[in-house]
Amino acid sequence: MATEGQQSNTSQRLPLELIAECTGSKLWIIMKNDKELVGTLRGFDDYVNMVLEDVTEFENTPEGIRTNQLDQILLNGNNICLLIPGGSGPLGDQ
């Protein structure tokens, strides 16, 4: 079922197609560790390594949330946990 289902089934939207639709818009990324990022998605590959622009990096520390601003990054897909289209980020809409 799973073997031939993936390609012939047109009603199912593949996860990577959802990400492709986010290209050019804001995306909120939650990593496996205590890090989160919000940025504009410019592109990605099959491993979900992503090129992001105007990135805000959020790091949860005992003192609070540390943020860091970056112009353009290539994010390693290896440690990504969740992707949320829209990109309100951990602090809500700013």
Binding site: M31, K35, E63, I65, T67, L70, I73, L75
Partner: peptide, 18 residues
């Protein structure tokens, strides 16, 4: 974690609470 172009913008350190 990431490779970033070097930015000239100054780093912001902002402390918010949990």
């Amino acid at each position: 974690l990431y490779i970033s172009t070097q930015t000239s913008k100054k780093k912001k350190l902002l402390v918010e609470f949990r």
